[in-house]
Design a protein around this nucleic acid. Structure first.
Length: 835
DNA sequence: GATCTGGAAATACAA
DNA sequence: TCTTGTATTTCCAGA
């Protein structure tokens, strides 16, 4: 089994074999008048709408047996942009040849063995563009498990529905209808509970039966889900299972018996749960999706092992067109929240606590906002009329780079109280909730449909390759993504993350949480007052500063003085204690935490003691937090995972070396920015201190298109602009600094990074991971492109070597480098001055 | 009747 | 290896 590391996988994506599956035509959104999208959707690789060079990859073509009547085919085939699919249309499917987005050392829950069951299979093929990390071993064709639901997609003809499709097709249709109605997934997905075999995918549904009756072989729905899961089809999986080395298979003959069986009698066994106006989409991955719990594997396998039920999806509410690019960035890629005119913002942050529910429990509802409402996300700068899809998944909140959380999954909430439409899909074994972002709603979405499911630690930890530990790893973040197709064929991917959310029952009420700190670093002499903002601070809360050696043992620990009088539940003022060694020659990275008692500690926050004579690295004032500052203490978000915004005082050796953003820096928000997002994502996801040093102009205020010159360590898609811009060819120039001047990076969240999560280990703050990936010193060594880089990788300037080193060591390296640069800079200034 | 919640007992783990 | 304290899971019951 190869290294499933995302990097690798992604990297190999371009050279991965492509399976062309001839299947029934898929109208997908074509009916909705989006040729562009459609084409993109159907031309994952070799075929680019814009004629961009297709990836040169070996292909395996599968001629699928058409399930659709010719007439239907014609209807759907009207889409020129789509590869003509007659009875035997061809769809190219990229076969990811890499494993899960996490390598063995960074497996996600899904990467476990169990995840390789039907679920993962299904998920892997949910869509060619959704799953890149499917390694051969994960290949559906290696597994008998096939998602019944999925099967429909491939074999079925999507929406060849009536002319113009159903009214629901209209993107403008209120998603809410679907929202409330649709429930297919949730019901099954919920809690990853064993799905009943009897659950058939969209058989019922409003569409399935009557309205959509025209579709004899229903199967897919071009509905939203269908689109997003185009390749999720079990059918495809089945086809692949039957795949021969010949490459071309007549689906009629080649389709696994199971598949054909499915087509023949899918209805009987399908007791599709029909919901009002519901969309029974999602079913396809669902049945097999959830294999998190290994204990369920058996059941699922049994189920999956059966013939494929082909759900007859009813037509569903119109959904925004899903992102159609075949090369979406992996979930553990760090993406910017803003690029060019676009800015993805979390307008209303979720509450810091949300008790996740177990599979054995009922839902505990949707994540709520502090105000009592729900989180709100909005995309600014998007002026097109095309709806977009907002993706949401549960990410980590530890001190490492953001990545899908192994122990938590987003859970779709439905019900009368839910006003936002959504559906679940799997990407890289991580469940994503897709929510429409509609122009009519000002590209704003109220996230009232997202709950959080807790997977049992044992189920995840026992999985082969899983290295994360679940114990005390109970904090998560909501991660939102949106992919915007550009006229030039590229795609801009934005991502924003919420504040951390504590998901455990107990700690939610007892553990202190530090969200912000007013001081990042200070001379070893200490004495300065630092304001901490967060939750659950008590009058008797203690603030402990600790320094640990690389091996983890304590080198120093001291209790800081807390101003008892000023302690509030949400804020606390503490005096920075003097460091043990006043003769520092280089910055020392320490941590501190708030303690409400034994075992009731906040996660560690980072703090840096500076040598007496070294200028303090100025912490860029956070406009967002200034208002929070009290007593003249400017606050800045400093979650253990956040990235300190260092004023880029480091010289930029070669700004040009950095990819230049396609867009100028994010313009100031042209829309009023809700003040309710004190720690809106941008701040939280600035994970690239080095990016600054390498790409940022020397002036923090300079709005020069800068792009994260960080290429995904092993990104195969260098030329897709490191994940943010999925260009079909040219190396993209990337993005711009965020509103605050910092730059997001597209660094791999290091699937191979520390294998074990350190929820409570301060370890490397946000910067750590970054440094780990691109430390200044390493950047210099970039001269020699890492072997991980694709051959067709971008220009030398982009070839940034990614060398992984011990976290602490890197932290220090980074600090040392910064320090040195500062010194040099100062001496230089000094010289000039005197001169 | 299905959900959502808050509590807490039963277990599993770790120090 | 036993004890004790925590953390995790599973159950219950009320709204």
């Amino acid at each position: 089994m190869g290294n499933p590391c995302l990097a690798t996988q992604y990297h190999t994506l371009q050279s991965s074999p492509v399976i062309s599956v001839s299947s029934c035509h898929q109208t997908g959104y074509s009916l909705q008048n989006d040729n562009h999208a459609a084409s993109g959707y159907y031309l994952p690789h070799g075929l680019r709408p814009n004629g961009a060079p297709a990836l040169e990859s070996p292909r395996i073509e599968i001629t699928a047996y058409s399930q659709y009547p010719e007439d239907e085919v014609e209807e759907s085939s009207s889409e020129d942009h789509i590869i003509k699919r007659g009875v035997n249309s061809i769809v190219t499917l990229t076969l990811p040849n890499a494993d899960g987005y996490r390598d063995p050392s960074c497996l996600s829950p899904a990467s476990s063995i169990s995840s390789r069951s039907c679920n993962s299979e299904a998920s892997s093929y949910e869509s060619g563009f959704y799953n890149y990390d499917n390694s051969p071993q994960n290949s559906p064709w290696q597994s008998p498990c096939v998602s019944p639901k999925g099967s429909s997609m491939l074999l079925s003809c999507p929406h060849a529905s009536g002319p113009a499709g159903s009214p629901h097709n209209s993107p403008s249709t209120s998603p809410q209808i679907g929202a409330v109605a649709e429930e297919g997934w949730p019901a099954q997905l919920r809690g990853s509970r064993p799905n009943s075999p009897s659950y058939s995918g969209g058989g019922g549904g409003n569409g399935g039966g009557g309205g959509m009756g025209k579709r004899k072989v229903s199967l897919t729905d071009e509905n939203w889900l269908a689109n997003t899961n185009q390749y999720t089809n079990s059918a495809i999986v089945a086809a692949i299972n039957a795949l021969t080395t010949d490459g071309v298979i007549d689906m009629g003959e080649g389709i696994p018996i199971k598949t054909r069986k499915t087509m023949m009698d899918h209805s009987p066994s399908m007791s599709l749960k029909v919901e009002p106006g519901g969309e029974e989409l999602g079913l396809d991955g669902e049945l097999c999706h959830e294999d998190y719990p290994s204990r369920l594997a058996l059941k699922k396998e049994n189920y999956c092992g059966g013939f494929l039920d082909v759900p007859q999806h009813p037509y569903s509410w119109s959904k925004p067109k899903p992102y159609l690019s075949p090369s979406l960035p992996a979930l553990d890629w760090q993406l910017p929240s803003c690029s060019g005119p676009y800015n993805l913002q979390i307008e209303v942050q979720p509450k810091s606590h949300h008790r996740a529910h177990y599979e054995t429990e009922g839902s505990r509802g949707a994540v709520k906002a502090l105000s009592g409402g729900h989180p709100v996300v909005q995309l600014y700068g998007y002026m097109e009329s095309e709806p977009l899809t907002l993706q949401l998944f549960i990410g980590t909140a530890d001190d490492r780079l953001l990545r899908p959380h192994a122990f938590y999954q987003v859970h779709r909430i439905t019900g009368k109280t839910v006003s936002t439409a959504s559906h679940e899909v799997l990407q890289s074994n991580t469940k994503l909730l897709e929510i429409p972002l509609l122009p009519e709603n000002n590209m704003r979405a109220i996230i009232d449909c997202a709950g959080i499911l807790k997977l049992r630690n044992s189920d995840i930890e026992l999985r082969k390759g899983e290295t994360d530990i679940g114990r005390k790893n109970t904090r998560v973040r909501l991660v939102f993504r949106v992919h915007i197709n550009q006229p030039n064929g590229r795609t801009v991917s934005l991502q924003t993350t919420s504040n951390p959310i504590e998901c455990s029952q107990r700690s939610a009420q007892e553990l202190p949480l530090v969200e912000k700190q007013s001081v990042e670093s200070y001379p070893a002499t200490g004495g300065k007052m630092m304001l901490l903002s967060g939750l659950n601070f008590l009058p008797d809360s203690k603030v402990m500063f600790v320094e640990k050696a690389q091996d983890g043992h304590h080198l120093w620990e001291t209790e800081a003085k807390v101003d008892k009088d000023s302690v509030k539940c949400s804020s606390l003022v503490v005096e920075i204690p003097p460091y043990r060694n006043q003769r520092l020659t280089s910055p020392v990275h320490v941590n501190f935490y708030v303690c409400n008692g034994k075992r009731k500690r906040s996660q560690c926050q980072h703090f840096t003691y500076l040598p007496p004579n070294v200028p303090i690295i100025k912490t860029e004032p956070s406009d967002e937090y200034d208002s929070l500052g009290t007593a003249g203490l400017p606050m800045r978000s400093k979650h253990y995972y956040s990235q300190p915004r260092l004023t880029p005082i480091m010289p930029v050796a070669d700004p040009d070396a950095c990819l230049v953003g396609v867009y100028p820096p994010c313009p100031p928000r042209h829309v009023a920015i809700p003040s309710s997002s004190p720690s809106s994502s941008p701040t939280l996801q600035d994970l690239s201190p080095v990016a600054y040093s390498k790409c940022l102009p020397s002036s923090p205020t300079r709005e020069t298109p800068v792009c994260p010159n960080l290429t995904h360590p092993a990104s195969p898609d260098h030329n897709t602009c490191l994940g943010m811009l999925h260009s079909q060819g040219s190396p993209g120039k990337l993005n711009s600094p965020g509103p605050h001047g910092y730059h997001p990076i597209y660094a791999n969240s290091s699937p191979s990074s520390s294998p074990v999560s350190h929820p409570s280990t301060p370890g490397g703050t946000a910067e750590s991971p970054f440094i780990q990936t691109y430390s200044p010193s390493q950047a210099q060594a970039t001269a020699s492109p890492p072997s991980l880089l694709p051959e067709d990788a971008s220009p030398p300037s982009m070839a940034i070597t990614v060398k992984r080193e011990p976290q602490d060591q890197l932290d220090q390296m980074y600090l040392d480098d910064v320090n040195e640069i500062i010194r040099n800079d100062l001496s230089s200034i000094s010289v000039h001055t005197h001169a």
